[in-house]
């Protein structure tokens, strides 16, 4: 008796397997088939719609957060064009391009993961989620080991930590403030994304996702696309425009 009510009346924690409309739950069926929407939704589709809308709204806030950085970039670039051109010369566009390619591929993988959830291809779902995670890791390694570490050693740092020995124009530390600020906030989003992929991967191994229920895969996937798109703007802005 006790288990019967869990899903429907657990007070909105829609993750738990619940009471079936048409008879008792067959625990041998995979989780995503047994899954019931939280009690305040009519059905899974209704819940999926709501989740998707929520994620989109959240992504709007992410874009607005970054827009502050873009805005600061535009203003200071107008004020000190030379400092920005010079600063940008210290960046190696090849690393930037490599990271762009990596993120684009990862965006494909996560989209494929959603597709495999929809078609109930459990094995490839897991593989794709894992690949996306690896791509995030590769991005961070390139960023930290081949870019940040080098800049750090050369003293190409924001504000008062700036201690570059070579030629520099006035106000170059401001360029580095924008560079470190924008890419740093972006990198922190990559780290959060990787954490989310671990969570999705663990759940996918337990058969949580399938054609009728893949909210988390979809949501995390959308988030990852935004992380990707932000980078696609950061890359030319910081590495290419001279």
């Amino acid at each position: 008796m006790a288990t019967i009510d869990l899903g429907k009346h657990g007070g909105g924690n829609g993750g738990l397997p619940g009471h079936d409309h048409h008879g008792a739950d067959d625990l041998s069926r995979p989780y995503h088939e047994r899954y019931h929407a939280a009690h305040h939704f009519e059905d899974r589709e209704h819940e999926f719609d709501a989740v998707k809308m929520g994620v989109w709204l959240f992504l709007a806030t992410e874009i607005l957060l970054f827009s502050g950085m873009f805005c600061a970039y535009a203003i200071f670039r107008l004020m000190y064009p030379e400092a920005f051109v010079n600063g940008s010369h210290h960046l190696d566009w090849r690393w930037g391009l490599l990271n762009t390619v990596i993120l684009l591929m990862s965006s494909y993988w996560v989209a494929a993961a959603v597709r495999h959830a929809q078609t109930n291809n459990q094995k490839w779902l897991q593989i794709n989620v894992f690949l996306t995670f690896l791509a995030g890791l590769a991005f961070l390694i390139i960023k930290f080991v081949f870019e940040y570490a080098k800049k750090y050693k050369e003293g190409l740092l924001p504000g008062k930590f700036y201690s570059f020995g070579g030629d520099a124009t006035a106000h170059e530390p401001l360029w580095w403030a924008i560079y470190w600020g924008a890419t740093g906030i972006h990198a922190s989003h990559v780290i959060v994304g990787m954490g989310l992929f671990v969570w999705v991967w663990l759940r996918s191994r337990r058969g949580h996702f399938g054609p009728g229920h893949y909210n988390a895969v979809e949501g995390v996937g959308l988030y990852w696309h935004i992380v990707d798109i932000v980078w696609i703007f950061l890359f030319p802005m910081l590495y290419l425009i001279h």
Binding site: T61, L65, S67, M69, Y80, P158, G159, A170, A177, G181
Partner: peptide, 30 residues
Amino acid sequence: VLATPVIGITLLLLIFERLFHIGIFDPRMG
């Protein structure tokens, strides 16, 4: 939803400014 992220980045920059003195809001550094 639409305005709060902007104060988010603003306060974050303020914190950076205080902790690392990045100069974005400091006229002495441009």
